[in-house]
Every structure is written in structure tokens, then in C-alpha cells.
């Protein structure tokens, strides 16, 4: 419950402060969001599996975001940024769906 409150607090702060993101950082935001979502759903599944570990969560979160952003950056430098972004979104999207399916099985037994 406390992490959920933290999430809501972060949302509120972000909406309230409305910080301006530098233009060069903006292409990485969608990818970072997808990567963060993946880590969050992975953590929820781990909690339900009973094997949650805070350090693993933090490391997986940060590495997900950093690696995803790096792949997009590399793609931009090589001129295939949009294709690599698509690849990242597909891979992370599949993971999110699988994790959500597992969470669903835990919660609803269906």
C-alpha cells in the first residue's frame, strides 16, 4: 500500500510542478515509461509469487530504463532510431502482457 501511495505522490508532484523536459530528452521519455512499466509489473508479479526483492527491483528498474534509452540513442546515431524504438516497445510490451497475465492468474485464478 505504501508504494502505491508513493506512486500517487510522484504522479501528483509531476502534474503539479509540470517541469519542462529538455528537447533532447523527449524522444527517450516514451521508451523510459514503457521500461518502467515493465519493471513495475515484474515487481508486482514477484510480490504475488512471494519472491520480491527490493534490490532486484531497483536494479532491474534502472537497468531497464537506461538500456532502453541507450538502445534508442544508439539507433538515433545510426539512423534507425524508430526501428529500434519499435523493437524495444515490442519486447517490453510482450513482457508486460505476460507479467499481467501471470498477475491475473494470481488474483483471479483464471
Amino acid at each position: 500500500m505504501i508504494p502505491v501511495l508513493g506512486l500517487l505522490a510522484g504522479l501528483a508532484v509531476g502534474l503539479f510542478l509540470d517541469p519542462s523536459v529538455p528537447v533532447w530528452l523527449q524522444p527517450y521519455l516514451p521508451i523510459a515509461v514503457i521500461a518502467a512499466l515493465d519493471a513495475v509489473f515484474g515487481a508486482i508479479r514477484a510480490i504475488l509469487d512471494g519472491i520480491f526483492n527490493d534490490k532486484v527491483f531497483v536494479v532491474s528498474f534502472l537497468s531497464n530504463v537506461v538500456v532502453a534509452a541507450f538502445i534508442v540513442f544508439l539507433g538515433d546515431q545510426l539512423g534507425v532510431g524508430s526501428q529500434l524504438s519499435t523493437g524495444v516497445v515490442v519486447v517490453l510490451g510482450v513482457r508486460i502482457f505476460s507479467n499481467v497475465a501471470s498477475i491475473r492468474r494470481h488474483l483471479f485464478r483464471a
Binding site: 504522479l11 515509461v33 531497483v58
Partner: peptide
């Protein structure tokens, strides 16, 4: 760690959406 990361995640979502 978890709470801090949760706050950070929410912040990231909000900033990205905005």
C-alpha cells in the same frame, strides 16, 4: 528504496504524459 522508486516512477509517468 521501494518507496523512493515508486515516487520516482509516478513522477516519470506524470512528466512524460505532460
Amino acid at each position: 528504496l521501494v518507496v523512493v522508486l515508486a515516487i520516482l516512477t509516478g513522477f516519470l509517468f506524470a512528466v512524460a504524459a505532460q
